[in-house]
Amino acid sequence: MVRFIKIANLLVFSIIGGILGKAVGDWYLAIPAVARLLGPSDQHRLVTSVGFILLGIIVTIYLSNLVTRQLMVLGEAVEEFSTTQKLEVLLGVMLGAVFATILVLPWPLHPTIKLCLWLLLGLAFAYLGARLFLSMKEDIFLFWPSAGAVAKAQAQAIGGGKEHSRERIKILDTNVIIDGRIADICRTGFIEGPIYVPGCVLEELHHIADSAEPLKRARGRRGLDILNQLQKDLKLLVRTYDHLPVDSNGEVDHRLVQYAKQLQAAIITNDFNLNKVAELEGITVLNVNELANALKPVVLPGEEMSVTLIREGKEINQGVAYLEDGTMVVVEGGRRRIGETLDVTVTSVLQTVAGKMIFAEVRSQNGEEEGASNVRGSGSGGWQRRKGR
């Protein structure tokens, strides 16, 4: 396709260059001084005309290479444009062509020269018009009532800022709503700015809530309850920007990415796949799971804590306990102490994709394992950090 465009441009520009060269040659030969110099010889006139034609072809071929490169760059960029940006490019091209027409028509030139000059100037001004409108898109939004402009104006009215207003919009996905932790996070004030729930997310929640499977139905109803709670506390933007042009037949995650692109918004999720796709698209992602991992208390080797062993470990003589935040604690020498609450000393901390894993050993006195005085009876779990000796 690219090669075809290059060949087509080369052919078109060569024809235009030949026509312009022939027209300029005829105009040159019509000058009285040149006519007297060349005399009545047709051979001299033919050579002069051919020379001008070749000169026109050479010049336009050089211009064709420059224009083709710029058109290729612009074409690749246009493929990534939103609908609003494509309309801006179209408007810029149309105004550029109109400006070239107004500029060329009044000139008293030969019709052939005028046509070729209009084609060249029209192409140049169309390109400049497209670049100009793209560079002025933020200002055009103020008076061009397109869908993207309306969304931006609404976001600015809510956010109160010009540069970062749309960036402050947060889009909730289905999984993070069902998870439920987002409600507590929002109540603490860590999430600022307007929170947008697209209609596709709401429809997916309704579909899950109507499922025949009891577990899925309970999850869907929980998500709807979380939304109602957030609506009362934060006044959510429900379906506010659903008029934006997105692929209505695409999956929910795909539509969320499109909304985020057009609104320059961030997506709040705990979905690993959506997180990766959005990051590849250059969208800011706020992952609730990453926030939970970041808020887990820092445990250093040598620190002491109290944990309740609940099951055996994979290796010999290991016991497993869990902290209140779900962090696994592997205790060496704890296999025979299942169900007991022991004082342990942290030996190492391993960071994995799923979170942190703590390795510890039963706290000893004078180099020996502590006896029954360390046993505190079976409990519900949890731990208490202690100062090292």
Rank of each mutant, 00 (worst) to 15 (best):
L87N: 06
F133L: 15
T68S: 14
L103Q: 03
L66F: 12
A155D: 03
V50W: 01
P108D: 11
N65W: 14
A157W: 10
I53M: 14
F99G: 05
I102M: 15
G148N: 09
I57F: 06
V67Q: 08
E79Y: 12
L123R: 05
V150I: 14
G39K: 09
C116A: 14
G159E: 09
V78Y: 10
L121D: 03
V67E: 06
E138R: 15
H44K: 10
P145M: 09
I102S: 13
I140Q: 08
E163D: 12
L117Y: 00
L87H: 07
L134E: 10
L123P: 01
P111H: 06
L46C: 06
S64Q: 10
K137F: 01
E80V: 11
V98G: 05
G92N: 00
V104M: 14
A77E: 11
G75P: 03
S135E: 01
T83W: 06
I53E: 10
K86E: 07
G51I: 08
L71S: 08
Q156S: 07
L66M: 11
G148Q: 05
D42E: 15
F52P: 00
L46R: 09
V50L: 15
P40C: 04
L115P: 04
V47R: 02
G96W: 03
L132E: 03
K86Y: 00
A124R: 05
F99E: 01
G148I: 04
L90R: 01
A97H: 05
V59W: 05
W144S: 04
L117I: 08
H44R: 10
Q156C: 03
H164R: 12
Y127I: 06
G161H: 12
E163R: 14
G92W: 01
P40A: 12
L46Y: 07
F143P: 04
P145G: 07
L63P: 02
A100F: 03
L91V: 13
E138H: 09
A151M: 02
L119Y: 09
G148A: 12
G160D: 01
L105K: 09
D139N: 14
A126T: 04
D42M: 13
Y127M: 02
Q70P: 02
K114P: 00
L142V: 13
W118S: 12
R45K: 15
K86H: 02
T68N: 12
A97P: 05
L90K: 05
T101I: 06
G92K: 05
W144V: 11
F143Y: 12
G161W: 08
V78A: 13
A130R: 01
L105A: 12
T48I: 14
L128K: 07
F99I: 15
H44A: 13
K162F: 15
W107F: 14
G96C: 06
R69I: 12
L142W: 09
C116V: 11
G161Y: 14
L87P: 02
L54S: 08
F52Q: 03
L87M: 13
G96P: 07
S165I: 02
A149W: 09
K152H: 13
L103R: 08
V89E: 00
L74S: 11
I53F: 08
L63T: 04
P106Y: 09
I158S: 08
H44L: 15
A130T: 00
V59F: 13
A157Q: 15
W118M: 11
G51R: 02
I53D: 02
E79G: 00
K137A: 06
L71F: 11
G160I: 05
F141I: 11
